[in-house]
């Protein structure tokens, strides 16, 4: 690592003030940022830890919606929303390993927007609202491509609000080495329709598979997907799979998610 200063504010206001400094960088659970620093691929002057801010912590189970503080670790989500939103809890409980789940935060994951991360699929499929330090952003407007989001400099995710669906499931096919999603599909059924979000597969990061959404909104069953294929264009091709393979997996995982959600 290069040298940096470290601050751990206890209020959102102090965090935002600290982030105003030159070359300041917010630090959530550090599951991406710390390895990046160790490889000397980033050189912030000051790290602003978000884990000491009470107003960014915790989970609120409301009527038909769940609000999760931006600095809430995955393990807390896995434990606390299991009854209210089991598919979301299952997703959180299957990110990385226990150490990752006890450090990594939902806000950190969504701010980073790794194209293979799990949470972006949950947020997009749920039509979640990303609550930031100065506004609310609909998930549909938030994800702008691989490692790119609508967040502005110094803007922090303070909470994420998930409307609870009637039925949902997240199916992750793991990349053999990293165990990130080679393809992950989150299917969520709401009264107004079905949303299908895909992570891991596309060069532009998480996306909604609208053709499947239309079919599943009409008939929420695996049969509805027959005859629909996800195009390979724009899919990631690497050591672990071709674009065609990923496109194929999108359909397989979508079908499995529907079966699991409907079952």
């Amino acid at each position: 690592m290069y040298e940096f200063d470290f601050v751990k504010p206890t209020t959102l206001a102090d965090a935002i003030a600290a982030l105003g400094a030159e070359e300041a960088q917010a630090l959530g659970g550090g599951q991406t940022l710390i390895p990046t620093l160790k490889q000397r691929l980033a050189a912030p002057a000051v790290l602003v830890s978000l884990t000491g801010i009470g107003e960014m912590q915790g989970i609120e189970l409301g009527e038909g919606q769940i609000t999760i503080g931006g600095a809430t670790p995955h393990a807390a989500v896995a434990a606390e929303v299991a009854a209210a939103y089991p598919a979301l809890a299952a997703l959180a409980g299957n990110i990385g390993d226990p150490a990752v789940r006890n450090r990594g935060t939902i806000g950190g994951s969504l701010a980073n927007n790794d194209p293979s991360a799990c949470y972006p699929a949950a947020a997009l499929a749920s039509g979640a609202t990303i609550v930031t330090s100065n506004r609310e952003i609909a998930a549909d407007d938030y994800f702008e491509g691989m490692f790119t989001t609508a967040l502005e400099d110094g803007e922090l995710i303070t909470a994420v609000r998930f409307p609870v669906p009637e039925a949902a499931s997240y199916q992750k096919f793991e990349q053999p080495a990293s165990r990130f999603a080679l393809v992950g599909v989150f299917v969520a059924k709401y009264p107004e329709g079905v949303r299908v979000a895909v992570t891991g597969a596309a060069e532009d990061g998480v996306f909604r598979w609208s053709e499947a959404e239309v079919a599943l909104s009409a008939d929420f069953s695996p049969a509805a997907l027959e005859g629909i294929d996800c195009p390979a264009e724009g899919m990631i091709a690497d050591l672990h799979g071709t674009a065609a393979y990923r496109a194929h997996l999108v359909k397989v995982m979508t079908r499995r998610a529907v079966m699991a959600a409907a079952g």
């Binding site: 053999p176 080495a177 990293s178 990130f180 050591l239 672990h240």
Partner: peptide, 21 residues
Amino acid sequence: LEGAVYDENGQLLSASYMDYA
């Protein structure tokens, strides 16, 4: 699972546990 893979320029593509299974 395991495989050390080089590209045609001699860069080791599987140079960490993110890609070496």
